[in-house]
C-alpha cells in the first residue's frame, strides 16, 4: 500500500507531510517522556523485527502469498506512540535503503499506515481488550484491529488519490476498500496468531505494553484525534459525503473554483449526481457496517479458538 512518488500531487504531498510530521512529533515527545531509557533500544529492534516480519510470506492460495503489515501488532505490544515511531523508521528505511515507497510521499504513507492505520486499529484493540479482560479480549482486539487498520489505511490512500485527481473517488474507494477488506482478513489472522504465539512463549511480553503508556494524558489523544479528523476531513469527507461541500463553498466565495484545485477527471458515470447519491452512500455505509460486524464476529471466534487451543498453561503442562 506504499504510495510511490508521482502518484499524489504536490498539494496532497505537502499537506500529508505536515500532518504526518505533527503526528510523529507528538509520538516522539510522548515516548520520550514515558519511555524508560532501558527501553530505547527496543524501538530500534522492534523496527528491525517489523521489517523482517513484513518479508516473511504466508502461503494463501496456489502461487499467492500475503504478509504481515503489523501496525496494530506493534501498537498492542509497545503502545501507540512507540508504534508510530517504529513505523516511521520502517518507512524511512524502506524508502532510502530499498527505494520502496516514495520520498516525497513519505508523509502520506506515514499518515495512512501509522496515524490512521496503526493508531486507529489500536483504539479498536484497546476497546475490545477492555470489554473482555484476559487473552480473549486481546486476541479479538488484535484480529479486529488489524482488519480495521488495513481498511482505514486503504480508505485514506484512496482519499489521497482522489484529492490528487488521479482517480475518481468512487472507483478508488471501491477498489481499494474492497481489496483491503479481504487483505485485512489475512492481516487480522496473522496478527492474532503471532500474538497468541508470543503469549504462549513469553506471557510477560504481552501482559502490558512494553513501553508503559496506560496513563496517556488526554492532551495526547486530543492531538491525535484532531490530526486524524483533519486528515479525514480533507481527504475523505468531501468525496464520501453527499452534503454540500464547505471547502468548495469557501473556495467559491474566495473566487477560486474547485476545478482549479482538482484536475479534471471524467466521472465514473455522468449521471452520478442524481438524487440516488444519498441512497448509494447509505447503501455503502450499511454494507460496510455489516462487513465490519461479520469480521468482528470472526475475530471473536478466532480469539476463542486460540485461547482454547494454545494457552500457556497447556503448553507448560505438555513441557512438564
Amino acid at each position: 500500500m506504499h504510495i510511490p512518488d508521482g502518484l499524489i500531487d504536490a498539494k496532497t504531498a505537502a499537506v500529508t507531510a505536515a500532518l504526518a510530521a505533527a503526528g510523529l512529533g507528538m509520538a516522539l515527545r510522548e515516548v520520550q517522556r514515558q519511555l524508560p531509557p532501558r527501553r530505547v533500544p527496543l524501538l530500534g529492534l522492534s523496527a528491525a523485527f517489523l521489517f523482517v516480519a513484513q518479508m516473511i510470506n504466508f502461503p494463501v492460495l496456489a502461487g499467492t502469498s500475503g504478509h504481515l503489515l503489523g501496525g496494530v501488532l506493534v501498537a498492542a505490544l509497545l503502545g501507540p506512540g512507540a508504534a508510530v515511531v517504529v513505523l516511521a523508521a520502517v518507512l524511512i528505511v524502506q524508502a532510502f535503503l530499498f527505494g520502496d515507497g516514495g520520498v516525497l510521499a513519505l508523509g502520506a504513507n506515514l499518515f495512512n499506515m501509522a496515524l490512521l492505520g496503526a493508531v486507529g486499529g489500536w483504539w479498536v484493540y484497546r476497546w475490545a481488550s477492555r470489554i473482555w479482560p484476559g487473552p480473549q479480549g486481546h486476541l479479538t482486539g488484535v484480529a479486529f484491529g488489524g482488519w480495521c487498520s488495513t481498511v482505514l489505511a486503504a480508505i485514506g490512500c484512496s482519499g489521497m488519490l482522489a484529492w490528487s485527481g488521479k482517480a475518481p473517488w468512487a472507483v478508488a474507494f471501491s477498489a481499494m476498500a474492497g481489496i483491503h477488506m479481504i487483505i485485512g482478513l489475512g492481516e487480522g489472522l496473522i496478527s492474532a496468531l503471532v500474538w497468541a504465539a508470543l503469549w504462549r512463549l513469553r506471557p510477560d511480553l504481552v501482559a502490558q505494553p512494553q513501553t508503559p503508556q496506560s496513563g496517556v494524558p488526554a492532551t495526547g489523544w486530543i492531538g491525535y484525534g484532531l490530526l486524524v479528523a483533519l486528515g479525514l476531513a480533507l481527504f475523505v469527507v468531501p468525496f464520501a459525503c453527499p452534503w454540500p461541500d464547505g471547502l468548495e463553498r469557501a473556495l467559491a466565495k474566495l473566487g477560486l473554483e474547485r476545478a482549479e484545485l482538482r484536475p479534471v477527471v471524467p466521472p465514473l458515470a455522468p449521471d452520478y449526481q442524481v438524487p440516488g447519491v444519498s441512497h448509494a452512500a447509505v447503501a455503502t455505509a450499511v454494507a460496510g457496517a455489516a462487513g465490519a460486524l461479520i469480521v468482528f464476529g470472526l475475530a471473536w471466534l478466532l480469539g476463542r479458538w486460540l485461547v482454547r487451543s494454545a494457552g500457556p498453561n497447556r503448553i507448560g503442562a505438555a513441557r512438564d
Binding site: L42, L45, S46, A48, F49, V52, A53, I56, F58, P59, L68, L77, L189, I190, L193, V194, W195, A196, A197, L198, R200, L201, R202, L205, Q210
Partner: peptide, 16 residues
C-alpha cells in the same frame, strides 16, 4: 501458518 506465526513471535521475543 501456525509455524510461521510462532516463528514471528519467537523472533520478537529474541529481538526484545
Amino acid at each position: 501458518w501456525q509455524g510461521l506465526a510462532t516463528l514471528l513471535g519467537q523472533l520478537f521475543a529474541r529481538a526484545s
